[in-house]
Amino acid sequence: MIAETMAQGHSLLHRIDPRLRVLAAAFFSCAVAVFQTFTALSAACLAALVLLLVPGLNFRETGRRLMVVVWFLLLLWCLLPLTYEGAIAAKIGVVSIYWPGVRLSAQITLKSLAIIAVFTTLVATIPVNTLGQSLARLGVPAKLVYLLLMCYRYIFVIEQEYHRLVAAMKIRGFRPRTNLHTYRSYAYLIGMLFVRAATRADRVYQAMRCRGFDGRFHSLATFPPHPANQWFALAAAFAMILLVGLEWMD
């Protein structure tokens, strides 16, 4: 089942203004993506991992999510040090391990851990409805926000529809194999999903128009001032200056 597991919670981070969180995560990710030096990258990664420890966050869930990245990184460590040629760091039998490969793997590891950890703790903790409204207030085009909210609202409905269709196929004895029948059945399944999504969209849109929809979602959500906001903004600004400084100094 698709579930928005990170957004439920009552940690300190959940209380901070979502707009601030989005901005902080965006600046941090962009900066880390272009950093080169190991001091700045390690500091950034450390800062991001500290965010994971904020009390109240679902630690097991964030850990599970980071594992997706960790598997990719392990694969990278198996490939790059052996194929990315340059000065030889070590030789084990016929296999040689190259320095540039090790360097690059370490860089990618730090960068991706930092970026994903910040994204998970700061952005994935915002309920998507709220995220849409904060994006709108940050200047993202209204149409894109509308699209995001519609898509998000119906992902769960369409997933249920998908499970219903799959159950119907299974009842009729469908077992996926590598043959044309399987591909045809899956294609019809996907086609049916799209057809139902489209007809549902038309019905929903008519119902929305009947209720006076004029292209905008009027949000009742407010972002009340909270002392944590200022502290967060201050800390984020300080961390960013420190990280950029570290990168420049080297």
Binding site: I2, P141, K143, L144, Y146, L147, L148, L149, M150, C151, Y152, R153, Y154, I155, V157, I158, E159, Y162, P176, R177, T178, T182, Y183, Y186, L189, I190, L193, F194, R196, A197, A198, R200, A201, D202, V204, Y205, M208, G215
Partner: peptide, 29 residues
């Protein structure tokens, strides 16, 4: 976005949701 007028965004949104769900399907090979 310019080419999608407001009347078609609802449909695009739901098709996007269907695309999201359909891309989770694993096909045996």
């Amino acid at each position: 976005l310019k080419k999608l007028d407001y009347d078609r965004i609802a449909r695009a949104g739901l098709l996007s949701a269907a695309f999201f769900v359909a891309s989770l399907i694993h096909v045996p090979i």
